[in-house]
């Protein structure tokens, strides 16, 4: 192999042989210049492939093939539960972001045991003083309830229609993880108002964590900031609720939906 520079495609000669306007020449020169360095053609091919993928002549769907439309549409509400949980999640995110302007994750301010803390007071403030605050909290709470309910029912739908089978195992497992995280979302949000019920629910959480062999104390430290409940617990639950879980759950939902997109919806027979 010689060291002489090889140039199979003499683009410049080809350019000269064409009868081009100044604009075309400039454009092609730039394009060739860039392509020699960045290999744009590869990306163009990628785009082209994507274009043809998107406009693929789809085969007839199972429902079409076997004329199951009536059956499918009859059960359609059950097939929109995943969508409902995402809508509820988004509504909770919006209302939660607005609530976050007013909520203070602090146990300060209680002179004696059982006095309202700063967190509790900020909740009362949201519900009584903030314009639309009562409704805002109600929306946040109910969208959370709807999300959990939709997620549970979604799982049941997937189970009873066998939609978790062969190529979709990974998405089923992802769904189980998402359910667990949704419950954790709900639990951490339940603790935030620092009501009696919040406090004692968290107390049970700590006891559970401590009952776990080997990692128990570590888990209690990580999640609840100690073995007894206090300021650290509230802040950890707050950060979990407004920072950690939103990122994780949003990312997992994106992957979950992405896999559904790639694999297609498992239609009933």
């Amino acid at each position: 192999m010689s060291l002489k520079k090889q140039d199979d495609m003499d683009h410049n000669a080809w350019l000269k042989s064409q009868d081009l306007t100044a604009i075309e020449t400039a454009f092609l020169t730039t394009l060739i210049w860039l392509d020699k360095r960045l290999r744009i053609v590869d990306y163009l091919e990628l785009l082209e492939t994507m274009y043809y993928r998107a406009n693929l002549q789809m085969p007839k769907s199972h429902t079409e093939q076997y004329d199951l439309d009536n059956k499918f549409w009859y059960w359609y509400p059950l097939y929109s539960l995943g969508s409902l949980s995402i809508i509820a999640y988004l509504l909770a995110a919006v209302s939660g972001a607005l609530l976050g302007f007013y909520y203070a994750p602090s146990t300060a301010g209680a002179a004696a045991q059982g006095d309202p803390t700063a967190a509790y007071d900020s909740m009362v403030m949201i519900m009584t003083d903030v314009q639309f605050g009562f409704m805002l909290r109600s929306i946040h709470r109910w969208s959370a309830q709807f999300m959990v309910a939709a997620v549970f029912l979604h799982m049941l739908r997937v189970y009873f229609t066998g939609a978790y089978k062969e190529p979709r195992e990974v998405n089923w497992i992802l769904g189980v993880v998402l359910i667990a995280l949704t419950l954790l979302f709900g639990f951490s949000g339940y603790v935030l108002p620092w009501k009696q019920l919040s406090f004692w629910a968290a107390q049970i959480g700590v006891e559970l964590a401590l009952a776990t062999p080997i990692i128990g104390e570590w888990a209690a430290q990580l999640l609840f900031g100690g073995f007894t409940l206090g300021q650290a617990t509230l802040v950890r639950m707050y950060i979990l609720h407004v920072f950690v879980l939103p990122f994780v759950v949003t990312a997992l939902i994106a992957i979950h939906v992405g896999i559904v997109w790639v694999q297609g919806i498992a239609e009933p027979h």
């Binding site: 045991q113 059982g114 006095d115 109910w142 108002p193 620092w194 009501k195």
Partner: peptide, 9 residues
């Protein structure tokens, strides 16, 4: 709208 209970004790 949700019921709001007593502060933590």
């Amino acid at each position: 709208p949700g019921h709001f209970g007593d502060p933590a004790n």
